[in-house]
Simulated assay, not measured.
Amino acid sequence: MSVRGMTVAIHVGDREEALAFYCALIGRDPDMGPDPDFYEWEISPGAWLQLSTGREQIAPSSFRLRLKVDDIEAAHETLVQRGFELGPIKQLPGLVTFANLTDPWGNPLGVYQDMGLAPGA
């Protein structure tokens, strides 16, 4: 078996509110919307974020989805300017810098910057 991609599905409520939130977070419209309550972004080749809208009873996910950015400080500033409430930027020295947020339905999210540590080092 050779795994060549992945999808992560997030359940949310109101379609319009969800699209506004996630389009602003990701910085673009979905790559596809094969169903009126289902949208997808290809975050990187073979890695898809799926948004399932119109849910009435939502249990927030038990995992945090973090999106990789090139510059955590610039991303943090951009998201704050777009109206997002992010936590402070935190760092694991030599590994990663990140900031957390949640969507309106309580799903844990975040952005991160890889600090360039080689795998296995």
Rank of each mutant, 00 (worst) to 15 (best):
V3T: 13
V3S: 12
V3M: 15
A9P: 05
V12I: 05
G13Q: 11
E16L: 04
E17K: 07
F21A: 04
L25D: 01
L25S: 09
L25E: 12
R28K: 10
M32I: 11
G33V: 00
P34T: 04
P36D: 13
P36T: 11
Y39H: 04
I43C: 02
A47P: 12
S52G: 02
T53H: 05
G54L: 12
E56T: 12
E56R: 15
I58K: 10
S61N: 15
S61K: 07
S62G: 02
S62L: 12
F63S: 06
R64Y: 11
L65E: 14
R66S: 04
V69W: 05
V69G: 12
D70R: 10
A74T: 15
V80T: 07
R82N: 11
E85Q: 13
L86M: 10
L86H: 01
G87R: 03
K90V: 13
K90S: 11
L92M: 03
G94N: 14
V96K: 03
T97A: 14
A99Q: 13
N100T: 03
N100R: 11
N100S: 09
L101V: 04
T102L: 13
P104N: 07
P104A: 03
G106S: 15
N107P: 12
N107S: 07
N107L: 01
G110I: 01
V111G: 02
P119Q: 03
A121T: 08
